[in-house]
């Protein structure tokens, strides 16, 4: 690289910009209450673990983490199982009005959640899905499908047709061609869609708040939001909870950043 200083500067800025704000939360999480709102702010925490204890035991944080893992995990699995054949069909089969279907899916992705929240609530009430995990997973699947289908379609699209044609000649059905030939090749694409879906479901707040009022079922964003009592703003507990809640995702991203990028580069945005 000819521009080493520029690159180093860029790395420094990117990492600094991304991490610094969160670093302050990490520091805060190890403070005791009187330091949190100290004026001027003190940089170094006194190493108190009070907020972690409070987040974990009083607010039962792990219980929310568990709910979120269940909801986000199921959403991801179901969304992929449903999106894969749809994307394959859109990419490969001669269907009338395909452009419209893809455009329509994009439109669905554009609905403001507020527009559909009320009716979705009513459907779930009729199905008995309020205050259940599956009641939240169903709309999540629907909301993440457009993006998943979009990514997978572009991905399948890039795979060479010849492989499948060979499979067909060997007597494979369309389904067999999809599962035996295409799917293994499309692993990076599936992975990209999976992580996007997972993070969406992990982060979603609006529907979760509306559908889950039973504290036994609430997910992480709702759980953390509900740390706030009537008049007390528990910054310390929120900071500690955010640190704990972000750890699994950081580990995931760290392990899979390679997968995400391979996935996206092979499909999605090819001109």
């Amino acid at each position: 690289m000819t521009h080493r200083p520029v690159l180093l500067g860029g790395i420094f800025l990117a990492v600094l910009g991304s991490l610094c704000p969160f670093l302050w939360f990490i520091l805060t999480s190890f403070k005791s209450q009187i330091l949190v709102e100290a004026i001027p702010p003190t940089w170094w925490p006194d190493g108190s673990l009070v907020f972690y204890a409070s987040a974990l035991f009083e607010h039962r944080l792990l219980h929310y983490v568990r709910n979120s893992v269940i909801v986000a995990g199921s959403t991801t699995v179901i969304a992929l199982v449903v999106a894969t054949p749809a994307a394959y069909a859109l990419a490969r089969l001669r269907l009338p009005g395909k452009t419209w279907v893809l455009g329509g899916l994009l439109c669905v992705a554009m609905f403001p959640p507020i527009v559909i929240a009320g009716p979705v609530w009513q459907i779930l009430e009729r199905l008995g899905g309020l205050n259940t995990h599956w009641g939240l997973v169903l709309p999540y699947v629907s909301l993440t499908l457009p993006l998943a289908v979009w990514i997978l379609t572009t991905f399948f699209h890039e795979l060479p047709v010849e492989l499948e044609e060979a499979a067909r000649i060997d007597g494979c059905t369309t389904w067999q061609a999809l599962y035996k030939i295409m799917l293994p090749l499309a692993t990076p694409g599936l992975f990209t869609a999976a992580i996007l879906t997972f993070i969406y479901a992990w982060n979603e707040f609006f529907f979760a708040l509306l559908i889950l009022t039973d504290p036994e079922r609430q997910t992480l964003p709702v759980g953390i939001a509900l740390f706030q009592g009537e008049f007390i703003m528990p910054w310390g507990e929120i900071a500690a909870a955010s640190v704990i809640a972000t750890l699994p995702l950081i580990i995931l991203v760290l392990l899979f950043q390679r997968g995400i990028i391979n996935g996206l580069s092979a499909g999605a945005v090819k001109g």
Binding site: A14, S18, L249, L252
Partner: peptide, 8 residues
Amino acid sequence: VLIPWAIP
């Protein structure tokens, strides 16, 4: 750089 995106 992906961390901010992973925070709710």
